[in-house]
């Protein structure tokens, strides 16, 4: 069996094993969906300045983007750090093609977690924030590639971080603050128009901004463009930046993982 197929199957088994632990499953879901509901209830009622779109609707794609980002850059490193502590990563190193299989497996579990989270958030978003399903086939297509590319942009880097920190607690401590900062400056919860130019520039280097933008283009009416930088959806640029992070990470991560001691 080739390493890709084996990795896909590994990821599926891994996810079933995780889901069969009800406590972990509930924790993961309540964390994401619960936070979303609280945010919408507290700050969602006003309109985005200069548009007729509610903050709740504006925030929904941003929250989805952040959920993807946090799954890849916080949850995944913690899982990998735990795998390393337990010796799962070391086991992978003893098998031919083991690291590739392991990483593919982790990519699969991350994607499955993202899809499940996205589905649940959207399920709540329809009644709560008045967000509708994507209006056209083109927008559905955008939804898929933004989610997939956005995940691929962060998964290898998350894997890299997970392989460098000493344990899951260290991973959580190290990542929570930068993730929050990036969330604040990336325009996922509040329109970026209100930020100073330097901050906007920094935000646009990271994948979170582009993923938020891509998802807003999917779910929000074009009337919200008044609050976007440049008043347009530069989806080509979004794809390019996300793609660059994905490719860069995929080249770097396996190389680094092979060099880090597994225990």
């Amino acid at each position: 069996m080739n390493t890709t197929t084996l990795g896909l199957r590994r990821g599926w088994t891994e996810q079933l094993n995780l889901w069969s632990d009800r406590k972990e499953l509930l924790n993961a879901l309540a964390g994401t969906v619960g936070t979303y509901v609280i945010l919408v209830l507290f700050i969602g009622s006003a309109n985005v300045p200069g548009t007729s779109v509610s903050m709740a609707a504006f925030m929904t794609p941003g929250f989805l983007a952040f959920a993807v980002f946090a799954t890849g850059l916080t949850a995944l490193p913690m899982l990998i750090a735990a795998d390393r502590e337990e010796g799962t990563l070391m086991r992978a190193r003893t098998l031919p093609g083991g690291i590739r299989v392991y990483l593919t497996g982790r990519a699969v579990t991350t994607l499955l977690t993202i899809v499940l989270n996205a589905a649940l958030v959207l399920l709540v978003a329809v009644p709560l924030a008045g967000v509708g399903a994507p209006a056209t086939p083109a927008r559905w297509f955008t939804l898929v590639w933004v989610l997939v590319l956005g995940a691929l942009a962060v998964v290898p880097i998350g894997a890299m971080i997970g392989s460098l920190v000493s344990g899951p607690k260290a991973a959580a401590a190290m990542l929570a603050l930068p993730a929050m900062l990036l969330m604040l400056i990336s325009g996922v919860m509040f329109p970026l128009e209100s930020m100073p130019g330097v901050v906007r520039g920094i935000a646009q280097v990271f994948p979170l901004y582009w993923q938020g933008l891509g998802l807003r283009a999917v779910f929000l009416p074009d009337s919200v463009l008044a609050a976007e930088l440049g008043h347009s959806w530069p989806l080509g640029r979004a794809a390019a930046v996300l793609g660059a992070w994905a490719v860069g990470g995929m080249v770097l991560a396996p190389w680094l993982l092979r060099r880090v001691r597994g225990r």
């Binding site: 088994t13 995780l18 337990e86 010796g87 086991r91």
Partner: peptide
């Protein structure tokens, strides 16, 4: 390879 004191893949059957 059988290493010392392995406890990997604890959730796997």
């Amino acid at each position: 390879v059988v290493m010392q004191s392995w406890r990997d893949h604890p959730r796997w059957r």
